[in-house]
Amino acid sequence: MAAVITAPPRAPEKRSRRRGGAAWARRLVFVIAGLYFLVPLYAAFRFAISTPDGGISGAVFAGIPAQEGFLDAITLTVRLAVISLVITLVLVVPTAVWVHLRMPRLRRVLEGVTLLPIVVPPVVLIIGVLEVAPPALKGTPDLLALVYVVLALPFAYRALDSGLQAIPLRTLVEASRSLGAGWGRTLVSVVLPNLRSALLAAVVLTVAMVFGEYTMASLDQYETFPVWIVVFQQANARVSVAVSLLALLGTWALLWLISLVDRRRPSPEDA
Protein backbone atom coordinates (compact mmCIF):
# COMPACT_ATOMS: atom_id res chain seq x y z
CA MET A 1 0.00 0.00 0.00
CA ALA A 2 1.19 3.47 -0.76
CA ALA A 3 2.88 5.48 1.91
CA VAL A 4 1.18 8.77 2.50
CA ILE A 5 3.45 11.73 2.64
CA THR A 6 2.16 14.70 4.54
CA ALA A 7 2.20 17.88 2.57
CA PRO A 8 2.16 21.56 3.39
CA PRO A 9 -1.15 23.10 2.36
CA ARG A 10 0.01 24.48 -0.96
CA ALA A 11 -0.88 23.67 -4.53
CA PRO A 12 1.61 21.91 -6.80
CA GLU A 13 4.39 24.39 -7.37
CA LYS A 14 5.85 23.10 -10.57
CA ARG A 15 2.52 23.38 -12.29
CA SER A 16 1.97 26.96 -11.32
CA ARG A 17 5.51 27.75 -12.40
CA ARG A 18 4.78 26.27 -15.79
CA ARG A 19 1.62 28.33 -16.03
CA GLY A 20 3.67 31.32 -14.98
CA GLY A 21 5.92 30.73 -17.97
CA ALA A 22 2.96 30.78 -20.34
CA ALA A 23 1.66 33.92 -18.68
CA TRP A 24 5.02 35.64 -19.18
CA ALA A 25 5.08 34.68 -22.84
CA ARG A 26 1.59 36.10 -23.16
CA ARG A 27 2.57 39.30 -21.47
CA LEU A 28 5.53 39.65 -23.80
CA VAL A 29 3.23 39.29 -26.82
CA PHE A 30 0.93 41.99 -25.43
CA VAL A 31 3.78 44.36 -24.70
CA ILE A 32 5.24 44.02 -28.21
CA ALA A 33 1.83 44.37 -29.84
CA GLY A 34 1.04 47.33 -27.60
CA LEU A 35 4.27 49.08 -28.62
CA TYR A 36 3.70 48.43 -32.32
CA PHE A 37 0.16 49.80 -32.24
CA LEU A 38 0.44 52.59 -29.67
CA VAL A 39 3.82 54.18 -30.41
CA PRO A 40 2.78 55.43 -33.88
CA LEU A 41 -0.42 56.83 -32.34
CA TYR A 42 1.64 58.64 -29.76
CA ALA A 43 4.11 59.91 -32.35
CA ALA A 44 1.29 61.28 -34.48
CA PHE A 45 -0.36 62.84 -31.45
CA ARG A 46 2.88 64.59 -30.52
CA PHE A 47 3.17 65.85 -34.07
CA ALA A 48 -0.39 67.20 -34.03
CA ILE A 49 -0.06 69.14 -30.79
CA SER A 50 3.37 70.62 -31.42
CA THR A 51 3.23 74.19 -32.69
CA PRO A 52 5.55 75.58 -35.35
CA ASP A 53 7.45 77.58 -32.73
CA GLY A 54 8.31 74.41 -30.81
CA GLY A 55 5.60 74.70 -28.16
CA ILE A 56 2.64 72.44 -27.44
CA SER A 57 -1.02 73.26 -27.97
CA GLY A 58 -4.25 71.28 -28.05
CA ALA A 59 -6.01 74.05 -29.95
CA VAL A 60 -5.69 72.09 -33.15
CA PHE A 61 -8.36 69.65 -31.97
CA ALA A 62 -10.81 72.36 -31.01
CA GLY A 63 -10.59 74.01 -34.42
CA ILE A 64 -11.45 70.92 -36.47
CA PRO A 65 -15.19 71.45 -37.13
CA ALA A 66 -14.48 74.95 -38.44
CA GLN A 67 -12.00 73.72 -41.04
CA GLU A 68 -12.92 74.35 -44.59
CA GLY A 69 -14.70 71.45 -46.24
CA PHE A 70 -14.80 69.31 -43.10
CA LEU A 71 -18.54 69.46 -42.55
CA ASP A 72 -19.28 68.97 -46.25
CA ALA A 73 -17.08 65.90 -46.31
CA ILE A 74 -18.73 64.46 -43.20
CA THR A 75 -22.22 65.15 -44.55
CA LEU A 76 -21.42 63.50 -47.85
CA THR A 77 -19.89 60.46 -46.19
CA VAL A 78 -22.81 59.99 -43.81
CA ARG A 79 -25.18 60.19 -46.77
CA LEU A 80 -23.22 57.55 -48.67
CA ALA A 81 -23.06 55.37 -45.57
CA VAL A 82 -26.83 55.52 -45.05
CA ILE A 83 -27.61 54.71 -48.68
CA SER A 84 -25.14 51.82 -48.81
CA LEU A 85 -26.32 50.48 -45.49
CA VAL A 86 -29.99 50.47 -46.45
CA ILE A 87 -29.37 48.79 -49.80
CA THR A 88 -26.98 46.27 -48.27
CA LEU A 89 -29.42 45.22 -45.57
CA VAL A 90 -32.43 45.10 -47.90
CA LEU A 91 -30.43 42.97 -50.29
CA VAL A 92 -28.56 40.70 -47.92
CA VAL A 93 -31.00 39.94 -45.10
CA PRO A 94 -33.90 38.46 -47.12
CA THR A 95 -31.48 36.65 -49.40
CA ALA A 96 -29.54 35.06 -46.56
CA VAL A 97 -32.75 34.02 -44.78
CA TRP A 98 -34.25 32.70 -48.01
CA VAL A 99 -31.18 30.68 -48.86
CA HIS A 100 -31.05 29.18 -45.39
CA LEU A 101 -34.71 28.20 -45.57
CA ARG A 102 -35.29 27.19 -49.13
CA MET A 103 -31.96 26.51 -50.82
CA PRO A 104 -29.39 25.42 -48.24
CA ARG A 105 -27.33 23.95 -51.05
CA LEU A 106 -26.91 27.39 -52.55
CA ARG A 107 -25.07 28.58 -49.45
CA ARG A 108 -21.70 27.55 -50.81
CA VAL A 109 -22.39 29.23 -54.14
CA LEU A 110 -23.42 32.44 -52.45
CA GLU A 111 -20.37 32.28 -50.25
CA GLY A 112 -18.29 32.12 -53.40
CA VAL A 113 -20.15 35.10 -54.90
CA THR A 114 -19.50 37.20 -51.82
CA LEU A 115 -15.81 36.43 -52.21
CA LEU A 116 -15.73 38.01 -55.66
CA PRO A 117 -15.29 41.60 -54.46
CA ILE A 118 -12.05 40.42 -52.87
CA VAL A 119 -10.91 38.96 -56.17
CA VAL A 120 -11.70 42.21 -57.96
CA PRO A 121 -9.65 45.02 -56.36
CA PRO A 122 -11.59 48.28 -55.86
CA VAL A 123 -9.22 50.11 -58.15
CA VAL A 124 -10.18 47.73 -60.97
CA LEU A 125 -13.86 47.79 -60.16
CA ILE A 126 -14.06 51.59 -60.29
CA ILE A 127 -12.57 51.64 -63.79
CA GLY A 128 -15.33 49.38 -65.03
CA VAL A 129 -18.06 51.19 -63.14
CA LEU A 130 -17.03 54.58 -64.50
CA GLU A 131 -16.97 53.11 -67.96
CA VAL A 132 -20.43 51.55 -67.99
CA ALA A 133 -22.37 53.86 -65.67
CA PRO A 134 -25.02 55.97 -67.40
CA PRO A 135 -24.14 59.70 -67.43
CA ALA A 136 -27.02 60.53 -65.12
CA LEU A 137 -25.50 58.40 -62.36
CA LYS A 138 -21.96 59.41 -63.12
CA GLY A 139 -22.71 62.99 -62.18
CA THR A 140 -23.76 62.12 -58.62
CA PRO A 141 -21.80 60.78 -55.65
CA ASP A 142 -24.63 58.30 -55.05
CA LEU A 143 -23.00 56.09 -57.64
CA LEU A 144 -20.28 55.52 -55.07
CA ALA A 145 -22.84 54.36 -52.55
CA LEU A 146 -24.21 51.84 -55.04
CA VAL A 147 -20.75 50.41 -55.62
CA TYR A 148 -19.92 50.43 -51.90
CA VAL A 149 -22.75 47.95 -51.50
CA VAL A 150 -20.70 45.48 -53.53
CA LEU A 151 -17.68 46.06 -51.27
CA ALA A 152 -19.82 45.62 -48.16
CA LEU A 153 -21.44 42.41 -49.36
CA PRO A 154 -18.77 39.96 -48.19
CA PHE A 155 -18.68 41.32 -44.66
CA ALA A 156 -22.41 41.77 -44.30
CA TYR A 157 -23.28 38.41 -45.79
CA ARG A 158 -20.74 36.54 -43.70
CA ALA A 159 -21.90 38.17 -40.49
CA LEU A 160 -25.52 37.28 -41.22
CA ASP A 161 -24.72 33.81 -42.44
CA SER A 162 -22.99 32.89 -39.20
CA GLY A 163 -25.80 34.51 -37.25
CA LEU A 164 -28.36 32.40 -39.10
CA GLN A 165 -26.30 29.28 -38.53
CA ALA A 166 -26.55 29.86 -34.81
CA ILE A 167 -30.36 30.04 -34.54
CA PRO A 168 -33.01 27.38 -35.21
CA LEU A 169 -34.32 29.43 -38.16
CA ARG A 170 -36.57 26.81 -39.69
CA THR A 171 -38.33 26.09 -36.41
CA LEU A 172 -38.84 29.78 -35.69
CA VAL A 173 -40.28 30.47 -39.12
CA GLU A 174 -42.54 27.42 -39.11
CA ALA A 175 -43.84 28.30 -35.66
CA SER A 176 -44.59 31.84 -36.74
CA ARG A 177 -46.22 30.80 -40.01
CA SER A 178 -48.33 28.15 -38.30
CA LEU A 179 -49.63 30.82 -35.94
CA GLY A 180 -50.85 32.74 -38.97
CA ALA A 181 -48.15 35.37 -39.48
CA GLY A 182 -47.23 36.31 -43.03
CA TRP A 183 -43.72 36.26 -44.46
CA GLY A 184 -43.11 39.97 -43.85
CA ARG A 185 -44.28 39.88 -40.28
CA THR A 186 -42.30 36.70 -39.63
CA LEU A 187 -39.15 38.33 -40.92
CA VAL A 188 -39.58 41.56 -38.97
CA SER A 189 -40.89 40.33 -35.65
CA VAL A 190 -39.45 36.83 -35.40
CA VAL A 191 -36.27 36.46 -37.44
CA LEU A 192 -34.65 39.89 -37.14
CA PRO A 193 -34.84 40.15 -33.34
CA ASN A 194 -32.98 36.85 -33.15
CA LEU A 195 -30.27 38.17 -35.43
CA ARG A 196 -29.48 41.27 -33.40
CA SER A 197 -25.77 40.59 -32.97
CA ALA A 198 -25.28 39.58 -36.57
CA LEU A 199 -27.14 42.63 -37.84
CA LEU A 200 -25.14 44.86 -35.57
CA ALA A 201 -21.92 43.40 -36.90
CA ALA A 202 -23.10 43.88 -40.49
CA VAL A 203 -24.00 47.52 -39.78
CA VAL A 204 -20.71 48.31 -38.08
CA LEU A 205 -18.64 46.68 -40.81
CA THR A 206 -20.53 48.46 -43.59
CA VAL A 207 -20.33 51.89 -41.98
CA ALA A 208 -16.66 51.45 -41.11
CA MET A 209 -15.98 50.45 -44.70
CA VAL A 210 -17.66 53.57 -46.11
CA PHE A 211 -15.85 55.85 -43.66
CA GLY A 212 -12.50 54.35 -44.61
CA GLU A 213 -12.85 53.93 -48.37
CA TYR A 214 -10.42 56.12 -50.22
CA THR A 215 -9.55 54.42 -53.50
CA MET A 216 -12.88 54.65 -55.27
CA ALA A 217 -13.90 58.01 -53.87
CA SER A 218 -10.67 59.68 -54.87
CA LEU A 219 -10.68 58.14 -58.34
CA ASP A 220 -14.32 59.18 -58.79
CA GLN A 221 -13.19 62.61 -57.53
CA TYR A 222 -15.61 63.13 -54.70
CA GLU A 223 -14.42 64.61 -51.45
CA THR A 224 -15.57 62.08 -48.88
CA PHE A 225 -14.10 62.15 -45.41
CA PRO A 226 -11.00 60.05 -46.20
CA VAL A 227 -10.37 62.07 -49.35
CA TRP A 228 -10.78 65.36 -47.52
CA ILE A 229 -8.12 64.35 -45.02
CA VAL A 230 -5.67 63.84 -47.85
CA VAL A 231 -6.59 67.02 -49.70
CA PHE A 232 -6.55 69.11 -46.58
CA GLN A 233 -3.25 67.69 -45.47
CA GLN A 234 -1.53 69.79 -48.08
CA ALA A 235 -2.96 72.91 -46.46
CA ASN A 236 -2.50 71.97 -42.83
CA ALA A 237 -0.85 68.65 -42.03
CA ARG A 238 -1.27 69.00 -38.25
CA VAL A 239 -5.02 69.41 -38.48
CA SER A 240 -5.18 66.48 -40.85
CA VAL A 241 -3.33 64.25 -38.39
CA ALA A 242 -5.48 65.47 -35.52
CA VAL A 243 -8.63 64.59 -37.45
CA SER A 244 -7.28 61.15 -38.32
CA LEU A 245 -6.50 60.45 -34.68
CA LEU A 246 -9.91 61.61 -33.55
CA ALA A 247 -11.61 59.50 -36.20
CA LEU A 248 -9.65 56.43 -35.14
CA LEU A 249 -10.29 56.83 -31.43
CA GLY A 250 -13.89 57.85 -32.05
CA THR A 251 -14.62 54.70 -34.04
CA TRP A 252 -12.93 52.63 -31.38
CA ALA A 253 -15.01 54.19 -28.63
CA LEU A 254 -18.16 53.66 -30.67
CA LEU A 255 -17.39 49.99 -31.28
CA TRP A 256 -16.62 49.54 -27.60
CA LEU A 257 -19.97 51.05 -26.66
CA ILE A 258 -21.77 48.82 -29.13
CA SER A 259 -20.01 45.74 -27.79
CA LEU A 260 -21.12 46.70 -24.27
CA VAL A 261 -24.73 47.16 -25.34
CA ASP A 262 -24.65 43.94 -27.27
CA ARG A 263 -23.33 42.01 -24.30
CA ARG A 264 -26.03 43.35 -22.06
CA ARG A 265 -28.91 42.02 -24.08
CA PRO A 266 -31.02 39.46 -22.26
CA SER A 267 -30.16 35.86 -22.88
CA PRO A 268 -32.68 33.68 -24.72
CA GLU A 269 -33.87 32.20 -21.42
CA ASP A 270 -34.88 35.59 -20.08
CA ALA A 271 -36.62 36.68 -23.23
Partner: peptide, 23 residues
Amino acid sequence: VATASGVFANFGGVPLAFLFVAT
Protein backbone atom coordinates in the same frame (compact mmCIF):
# COMPACT_ATOMS: atom_id res chain seq x y z
CA VAL B 1 -8.59 43.71 -28.61
CA ALA B 2 -11.76 42.65 -30.45
CA THR B 3 -12.95 46.23 -30.92
CA ALA B 4 -9.47 47.58 -31.65
CA SER B 5 -9.00 44.95 -34.36
CA GLY B 6 -12.22 46.09 -36.01
CA VAL B 7 -10.99 49.68 -36.05
CA PHE B 8 -7.37 49.10 -37.05
CA ALA B 9 -8.24 46.57 -39.75
CA ASN B 10 -10.15 49.33 -41.52
CA PHE B 11 -7.44 51.91 -40.93
CA GLY B 12 -5.36 52.94 -43.90
CA GLY B 13 -4.54 55.62 -46.37
CA VAL B 14 -3.06 58.94 -45.51
CA PRO B 15 -3.83 58.80 -41.79
CA LEU B 16 -1.92 55.56 -41.51
CA ALA B 17 0.91 56.94 -43.59
CA PHE B 18 1.07 59.89 -41.22
CA LEU B 19 1.32 57.72 -38.17
CA PHE B 20 4.34 55.99 -39.57
CA VAL B 21 5.98 59.07 -41.00
CA ALA B 22 5.80 60.50 -37.50
CA THR B 23 7.25 57.27 -36.11
